[in-house]
Structures are given as structure tokens and as C-alpha cells.
Lab assay of single mutants.
Amino acid sequence: MAAGGDHGSPDSYRSPLASRYASPEMCFVFSDRYKFRTWRQLWLWLAEAEQTLGLPITDEQIQEMKSNLENIDFKMAAEEEKRLRHDVMAHVHTFGHCCPKAAGIIHLGATSCYVGDNTDLIILRNALDLLLPKLARVISRLADFAKERASLPTLGFTHFQPAQLTTVGKRCCLWIQDLCMDLQNLKRVRDDLRFRGVKGTTGTQASFLQLFEGDDHKVEQLDKMVTEKAGFKRAFIITGQTYTRKVDIEVLSVLASLGASVHKICTDIRLLANLKEMEEPFEKQQIGSSAMPYKRNPMRSERCCSLARHLMTLVMDPLQTASVQWFERTLDDSANRRICLAEAFLTADTILNTLQNISEGLVVYPKVIERRIRQELPFMATENIIMAMVKAGGSRQDCHEKIRVLSQQAASVVKQEGGDNDLIERIQVDAYFSPIHSQLDHLLDPSSFTGRASQQVQRFLEEEVYPLLKPYESVMKVKAELCL
């Protein structure tokens, strides 16, 4: 049975990233139509530049190519590739079939990587351009969430054990800070992308030097003109047959890092959902379990974690691919890159769409948070109580021993009897502590235990987050809708 299948058929496997999760716009960027249309555009740009620099290419040939950029006979191309065992030459023939007058000058002087690699770089750039505003929107939604809850005390956790208090907004800023680093890295790697350009079979530009009869300047002009037509500021000066596969490492490393950030955020949300302090959106008709109707599973956060793990592992592909590119190139890269580049971007696209949807509907339960604080705060307040007693004339050592005994009794009630923490009640009825009984409410005010959390939130948002989001103001209103 021949390899390949009808990918629109229910009898043929289709990647869930495309069929179930990723956005239509990201799927289109990695589609065959987008790819092969870009090949034709690159052939047109090459012909236009070659004509401008004096090669015998007519206006009629150029116009014929322009008129057929979208006229792609995919069936013919597939048949040609089956016959020739070469995808680029299959599309040269297919393009030439609908451009008979231009057929002889299509791909003039070029090698397969002229269309293959340059198209990949265009796709990487455009895919990054799709991700950047999506990530900015996630940051914006979380920034709104953090600002609104900047002063809401909550129990902090280290080692997932109760620690000092923080605020809900401050905790959210930990998430935002990681995503801001990801946004900066995505922008950097996007701006650092260079075009492969017009380089020939081993990167020496020998074929173009021959076409222009040894004119170095025209060869350099050709490279520059096509690079500018493709919208790049610069091209690699040095290439082998391909652009260095280190570029793929750079791009997928940034995406993998984004995956790590999203995994951490969504894990926190899942843990908070278990504590009943916070939940992701839950639709009115949504079913959490087929057997347990009360369940409210954090399905979206779980999906993000599941896909983020996949995204983090994909960076190993370009690392290994770059390491086995012998001399000017081997074909070890080809099949692998067809999979890992598309999957990385479709996965990143999915987790950003999902995280935006989550961040637009996060639900906080202040009463649950308050109750958990009441359970733990008495123990945390013991040092403040000791200091207040010393100020009232008591002995630190005597007070410490009193607190120690009462704390152990209260802990026994919590752990052995399943009761509430009654340390404060014990202190309130103990005559030894009568000098500070009137101060206990103040000493137990949760806001006095959150330090500068709310001020940190305000400063972080104003100095770091809002300036970073400013270039994306025009796209901030787009909502994230999930079908599944």
C-alpha cells in the first residue's frame, strides 16, 4: 500500500493539533497551500530580480507567473513527485505547466533550498508574528487579574506546605514575570531571523556568478533584492546548502521555554482548584465526569500541561538535527523538520489560546482563602504575639514557653481530632496574655502579614508589564474561544 493518505478522510490519521486544537490561522501558515504558494512567490521574486539585473526574462513571463501564483494543481504535483521522487522539481514542473512561456526560467540558477529553506524562514517569521500578540493578550488578562487582587491576602506555599502570606495578585505576578520573559525572547528570536537568500547549491553562489558572467556586484544585488522582497532586513552571508540548523534550535528553545512557563502556571491553577481557592472557567453544560456528576475538573489547565510537556520535548529534535548536518548538509534534517517545526508552533498556539481562555474567566473564592488563612495564621502570628507581650512588660522566655504549650495543644486538636485551630481562643482565655487581649485582632490582621506584596504588584505592572504590552494595544480586544 502506498504511503500517505487522504487526510480529510475519517479513515486516515490526522494530527489532533490540526484537527482538534490549533487555530485556523496557525494551521494555514503550515498548510501545503501556504507552503507551495510561497515557493511560487519566491520563484517570481527571483525572476523579477534577475530581470532587473539584466537576464533575458520578459515582462510577459513575469506576468504569467504572477497570474498563476494561486493556480496550484495539487493532484498534478503529487503525481509528479511520485514520478520524480523530488518535491521541488515536482512543483517546478507543475508551475511550468500553467506558465508555459515562463517554464524555462522558473528556478533559474537556484537549488531546492532556495524555495525550501527560504519558505521555512518566512513561515517561522509569520508563525512567530501570530504567537506574539496571543502571548501579549494572556499577559494582559493576567495583569488585569493581578491588579484587581493585588491586596487580597492568601496563604503562600513553599514545598506545598503553608508559608508566609502573600497576595493573590502577587502570586499571579510570578506567572506574568515568566511570560514577559517569554514574550521578550519570542520577539528577540523573531527579529534575529535572517533570510537564507540566493546562495546556490553549497552556499557559494557559483551558479549565479556564472549567470551574471562573473559580476560579483550583481550577485550581491540579486541576494539583497530577493531578501528585501521577502520582507527581511538581512540575509546570511555564510550558508551551506541550507541555512544553519542552529536557527531551528533557537526558535524551538524559546517555544519550549514558553511551554515550561505555561505548565507551571496551569499546575498552580490545578492545585488551587483542589484547594477550592480558584477555578478555571466551567461552562453551564460542561460535564466533569461521566460517573461523578459533582466533579469540576480543571480540564483546560490539564490540557495545557499535557501539550506543554510535548512542546518542551520537541527542542531535542533540532538539537540532534543540527549535530548531524555533515559538511554542507545531509538530508537527516528533512523529514524531522517537516514534523517538529509545525508541531512546535501548533502546540504553542494551542496552549496560548487555551491559557487566554482560562485567564479571561478565572474565578476566585475569597471566603475559602480566608478560612485557610484562619487555619494557619495563628501559628504564624506567634512571633508577633511574643513581641507584643514583651512590649507590655512580659518575659520573652516565659511567653515563648506559654505559646509553645498552647500551640501544641491547638495542633493536637487540628491533627488528632480534625478540629479547627483554636490557638487564639486559648490565648484569649489565658490570664497571662490579658495585657494584649485587646491587640489580638490587630495582630491577626492578614494584611499585616503580606509585606509589600501589593506595592510590588503595582510597581511591576507599571514599570515592566504595561510598557512591554504597549506595541500590542491594537490587538488586545480579541477574545479566545474554545470549541473543545
Rank of each mutant, 00 (worst) to 15 (best):
I238M: 10
P162L: 06
G156K: 00
A103F: 09
E383T: 03
L55N: 05
V414S: 04
T158L: 01
F36C: 15
T321S: 09
V405L: 15
E376C: 02
S434A: 11
R171Q: 00
L311T: 04
G259I: 00
D117M: 03
E70K: 13
K284P: 09
Q408S: 14
R245I: 02
F282A: 13
E481S: 14
Q439V: 10
G393L: 06
P10V: 15
R190G: 10
S447Q: 12
Q51M: 11
I106E: 00
Y432W: 07
K402S: 03
A322L: 14
A110Y: 03
R85M: 14
D333L: 03
K147L: 11
F449K: 08
F195V: 04
Q455E: 13
V254Y: 09
A49P: 00
I105M: 15
Q41V: 10
G8S: 15
A22R: 09
K101N: 12
H310F: 07
Q456N: 05
Y294I: 03
L132K: 11
M26Y: 07
N118Y: 03
K264T: 04
E463N: 10
K66Y: 11
V390G: 04
K134V: 09
H437D: 04
S290D: 04
Q177S: 14
R194G: 09
R452K: 09
A47P: 02
T267V: 08
S140D: 14
D268W: 00
K415R: 07
M312P: 00
G451V: 03
S395V: 03
W175N: 03
F195A: 05
R188F: 05
F145W: 10
V92M: 09
L211Y: 07
G214M: 08
E70I: 11
R329E: 03
C172M: 06
N353A: 13
Y34V: 04
P153N: 03
M89D: 03
T154G: 03
H97V: 14
M225W: 00
L211Q: 10
L272E: 10
Y13E: 07
F282S: 13
G104W: 07
L482P: 07
R83Y: 13
G361Y: 07
L311C: 01
K246N: 02
K224G: 09
E220Q: 11
A431Y: 05
D87Y: 00
Y114K: 00
D120R: 02
V405F: 14
E328Y: 01
S412L: 13
Q184S: 14
L142R: 01
Q375C: 07
L193E: 04
I105S: 14
E81Q: 09
T111C: 04
D332Q: 02
Y432Q: 08
Q408H: 11
T330H: 04
C173A: 11
Q456L: 12
W43E: 06
L252N: 12
M278K: 06
V189Q: 15
